[in-house]
Design a protein around this nucleic acid. Structure first.
Length: 766
DNA sequence: TACTAAGCTCTTTTT
DNA sequence: GAGCTTAGTA
């Protein structure tokens, strides 16, 4: 049943691509170098399967990003039409969440379980550490969460963790012997809250398939064909699940490139791809080695670096494309200069060759690096779009409203309850909440049960009415879930909690922006309700599951003519005619976290503190900090990575480079200091007014070429002009040591607290 | 309980 | 520079 369409597309493929498309049965591995037309092959392979009579319902295609899934579905649809909708295609997390929703009762979870994001998880760990009266400097939420996450990705439950000597002894040697206990409590609390974190979506799926063979069987027969994209980025848990699913039919096709493995921090291991052959002896391997995307120069450069990898699949990436221009190296003394030079270069190229903004991309290793680039682009009026960073869904006003929705759907959701029980303020203060926490812990029940049954706890009597009123409100929302769709629910909640109105009434710049954000969220929900083809999937519960797994990068408005800024990780699989990579510095690319030096340093420092009192530790630390700054602790030498590129493509003026490195190390602290999220709009995630104005703010024309002055002499009463906030009067100056701060009353923005050392201020002389 | 001022801390990538 | 906590005050 080959139709005309198919004949056409098969003609457009090179021999290995065509073979990979036609081999639909049995275990298949496609090794696809960068730019080798991988997506095309995958798309046609699925299209071909459907055209040969395979029911789309029997196809499972797993990807790593929603974007990739969406893109592929779209492309398949253009070949086979509407049938493409019926393929089970999505990220590991979203597909497994869907399965878990169906089968939740088998694991004792509600089907409307909440998905905890990283913030929720950290916050929960923080409370647990506090409850266990452990030192939160040692048990940092990040560190603990990473340990737990690594364990989960390795299929180690909390019970196994406690008896895994290797893990526990590592923990005690590194001074954190209680991680196993925290893991246990964390798992319990999540379960009690009817919540799963990202890793649980994988681990619980594995548990489900292991403990309930009948369920596994059902899905094994449902998914007769399993396909995995970016196989080099799967972790052990994902690998095991896929293996189980494919065990009956063995129609499994994995696509990957060991050289593009960039998610080892998430537990990804290229062993999965290297060992695939052993798992399936009659495996068919297809190698896509011709690069259609890049010039010879770029392909060779990449090849020369990849050649250093210790373990790799044999493959030779090559291209027929022209040689292309040499890779240029721009040398800059500081991150600001770097930004300026990049922006300038884009501007010039654009003018010279009459290009669109969207043909340019600037990549970096860490999201924090976007700031100086943004400033530079803004000055040249080059429009840009940032991918990643603080997502829309992480902003305070959005999280608040979503917390109400989450709590409505799942009363046990502890993190949401904590967030909104006193927001908007309803007189439930810290003292009351401490008591609630205590009762919940003592009785092993959720916060909700304490709140909803406040009268049963004598020492809560004074707050009884307030707590009960809150519970009644949430319950009243819940009764509407049956009849109302996600949009009506959201609207009702936003209105009846007064959230919408209080934001509307706030006429400060930040307030207006927050209001607009909430309206945008509501519009998004409306869209969700109107667009979704499936009648049943319009409920609030489904919506919440959906957005829990969505990231900013998934919003694709590729139509906008803007320069793209993103991390190298999110750039994977994309292509742009002109690409700038910024921050090719020692300890930044590759990150010192991955090279290990930083970790050792921290470890050393921490062990040094053992036996000291907190006060002594603090004293030592402040002394150390006064002597050293981050970035100066380690000598700056061009990293191996950079040297290789430079040696290959330019004559390197070593002296100038070293000078640059020194200069940079001074601003090294700065570069990471505000890593936390440039804001797409006004206000930060806590919504406090004394914080920054966001990235889209336009500079007043008068101060576009702003040169800040030395502000050490600033005093109360001075009139100053700030780069972004405009004119203001100094109200308070404080701080002798550390960061000297001034509170300034700005004409437009009201009071702001600024750190003088960094503030871009100029005195206004009359 | 709510709010503000002062002070300390802080380095990665994403579902 | 900005998050976040704590101390202090209303």
């Amino acid at each position: 049943m080959m139709d005309q369409n198919q004949q056409d597309y098969l003609k457009g493929l090179n021999p290995p691509q065509r073979e990979a498309v036609l081999q639909t049965e049995g275990p298949v591995m496609i090794v696809a170098g960068a730019g080798s037309g991988k997506t095309r092959v995958l798309t046609y392979r699925i299209a071909h399967m459907i055209a040969s009579g395979i029911d789309p319902f029997n196809i499972l295609a797993l990807t790593f990003t929603n974007k990739a899934a969406k893109e592929m579905r779209k492309r398949i649809e253009t070949v086979v039409g509407a049938e493409a909708r019926n393929i089970w295609m999505g990220t590991f997390h979203s597909i497994f969440a869907k399965i878990l929703r169906f089968e939740a009762d088998k694991l004792g979870y509600p089907s409307n379980f909440t998905i905890y994001d990283t913030d929720d998880a950290k916050s929960l760990i923080k409370t647990i550490v506090k409850e266990m009266k452990l030192d939160d400097k040692v048990y940092k939420p990040n560190v603990v969460l990473n340990r737990i996450s690594a364990a989960k990705n390795g299929l180690i439950t909390y019970k196994m963790y406690a008896s895994a000597d290797e893990l526990t002894s590592y923990d005690s040697v590194s001074g954190r012997p209680h991680i196993a206990k925290i893991y246990e409590k964390y798992a319990e609390r999540c379960f009690r809250a009817g919540a799963m974190d990202f890793d649980d979506l994988l681990l619980k799926t594995f548990e489900l398939f292991t403990r309930h063979i009948d369920v596994l069987n059902k899905y094994q027969h449902k998914f007769k064909y399993v396909m995995v994209d970016e196989y080099q980025d799967t972790n052990h848990c994902q690998y095991m699940i896929v293996k189980k699913l494919a065990a009956v039919n063995e129609n499994i096709c994995v696509v990957g490139d060991d050289a593009q493995s960039i998610y080892s921090f998430r537990g990804a291991t290229i062993r999965n791809i290297l060992n695939f052959e052993q798992d399936y002896p009659d495996l068919k391997v297809f190698k896509l080695e011709q690069n259609y995307r890049s010039t010879q120069t770029i392909v060779n450069a990449a090849g020369s670096i990849i050649a250093n990898n210790k373990e790799q699949l044999e493959k030779k990436v090559w291209t027929d494309n022209h040689l292309g221009e040499k890779i240029k190296v721009i040398r800059a003394v500081s991150d600001n200069e770097e930004g300026r030079l990049i922006a300038q270069s884009i501007f010039e190229e654009k003018m010279k060759k009459q290009l669109d903004n969207k043909e340019f991309a600037i990549l970096y290793r860490t999201n924090a690096q976007s700031r100086s680039l943004e400033e530079a682009l803004r000055k040249l009026n080059l429009p840009y779009r940032i991918y990643g960073g603080l997502s829309f869904y992480q902003r305070k006003e959005i999280k608040d409203l979503i917390a109400y929705m989450r709590l409505t759907v799942n009363h046990k959701d502890e993190e949401s309850l904590k967030r909104i029980i006193n927001y908007p303020a309803r007189g439930i203060g810290k003292t009351t909440l401490d008591k609630v926490q205590l009762h919940a812990a003592e009785n092993g029940i959720s916060w909700w049960e304490v709140v909803a049954n406040a009268e049963m706890f004598p020492n809560l009597s004074s707050a009884k009415t307030k707590l009960k009123d809150f519970a009644i409100k949430i319950r009243s929302f819940a009764t509407m879930l049956e009849t109302k769709d996600a949009y009506d629910m959201a609207m009702h909640i936003a209105k009846s909690t007064n959230l919408l109105k209080s934001l509307y009434d706030d006429k400060t710049v930040e307030g207006i922006s927050r209001y607009e954000n909430v309206v945008e969220l509501l519009n998004g929900i409306k869209e969700f309700v109107e667009n979704d083809t499936n009648e049943l999937e319009k409920s609030l519960g489904i919506y919440l599951q959906d957005i829990a797994l969505i990231t900013d990068a998934d919003k694709d408005d590729g139509s906008e003519d803007k320069v793209s800024l993103m991390t190298i990780h999110s750039a994977k699989g994309l292509e742009f005619p002109y690409v700038y990579i910024s921050g090719m510095e020692e300890n930044l690319f590759p990150s010192q976290m991955s090279t290990g030096s930083r970790k050792e340093l921290e470890e050393e420092r921490r062990l040094f503190y053992v036996g000291m009192t907190r006060a002594e530790q603090k004293l030592t630390l402040s002394y150390a900090n006064s002597r050293f700054r981050f970035g100066q602790l380690l000598p700056c030498e061009p990293s191996r990575f950079i040297t290789e590129i430079l040696d290959d493509f330019i004559e390197l003026d070593k002296k100038a480079f070293e000078h640059a490195s020194e200069q940079r190390s001074e601003s090294g602290f700065h570069r990471f200091a505000n890593r936390n999220k440039p804001k797409p709009n006004f206000g930060n995630k806590y919504g406090k007014s004394n914080q920054s104005v966001g990235r889209t703010a336009k500079l007043p024309p008068a101060i576009q070429n702003f040169e800040p002055e030395d502000t050490s002499a600033i005093k109360v009463g001075d009139v100053v002009e700030h780069q972004r906030f405009g004119r203001g009067k100094v109200a308070i100056v404080d701080g002798e040591s550390g960061n000297k701060k001034a509170t300034i009353e700005f004409e437009q923005f009201g009071k702001k607290q600024l750190v003088l050392k960094f503030a871009k201020l100029r005195f206004v002389r009359s």
